[in-house]
């Protein structure tokens, strides 16, 4: 990226902590309400639960200004490319929260129209069950994202991890190759 790339590693250790603290303290979600879960997401933004207490008050309508994508609701096959495009337009670092069972795994909609979990389309950091989850649950998941964001590596550390993840993904057995009982 920039400055942190050229720093010696003992310096990036502490820079990572400071940057991680700053990132975790203000995670702005992108508006991506798809179904009933987004009603609960709006309630979380309201005065009773007040998402601003943990630094996520602004739901950005432009993905370029957002850090977190809360996929709230069932994702239809037709909407999947749109979701991927919005995710691609978000600037790094970015996180994805699959809110509700439909976004996490397809939920009770096990049919041809619904993507069986948004992790088929985008990498998901935190899965949040519930139909829909109550605002407290969303706040809890946001806290988990916050802890996750605090530990985001920078520079060389980030490249190492990205490489390891890529290799693991290439070596993983695809679901179509898995035989026998899937449990």
């Amino acid at each position: 990226m920039g400055l942190e790339e050229s720093m010696p590693s003992f310096l990036t250790g502490t820079v990572e902590d400071v940057v991680g603290w700053a990132r975790g303290a203000s995670i702005w979600p992108v508006t991506f309400g798809l179904a009933c879960c987004s009603i609960e997401m709006m309630a979380t933004g309201g005065p009773r639960f007040d998402i601003a207490r943990i630094g996520s008050e602004v739901f950005r309508s432009s993905p370029r200004q957002a850090d977190l994508m809360i996929v709230a609701g069932r994702l239809s096959q037709k909407m999947a490319p749109v979701l991927r495009q919005v995710y691609d337009q978000m600037s790094e670092p970015k996180w994805v929260l699959a809110m509700g069972v439909c976004a996490s795994s397809g939920g009770m909609f096990n049919n041809y129209a619904i993507v069986q979990g948004v992790d088929h389309v985008v990498p998901v950091d935190i899965y949040l069950p519930g139909c829909p989850p109550r605002p407290e649950m969303l706040l809890g998941a946001l806290m988990a994202i916050k802890e996750h964001a605090k530990k985001t590596p920078l520079g060389a550390h980030r490249r190492e991890i990205a490489k390891a993840v890529e290799e693991a993904a290439l070596a993983a057995l695809p679901t179509s190759e898995m035989k026998g009982l899937l449990r």
């Binding site: 996490s104 795994s105 979990g117 992790d119 950091d125 935190i126 899965y127 949040l128 069950p129 519930g130 989850p133 109550r134 407290e136 649950m137 809890g140 998941a141 988990a144 996750h148």
Partner: peptide
């Protein structure tokens, strides 16, 4: 108890 969330599908 409603506090459920996790980073993996298997964990849930």
């Amino acid at each position: 108890d409603y506090e459920l969330q996790g980073p993996t599908r298997e964990g849930l």
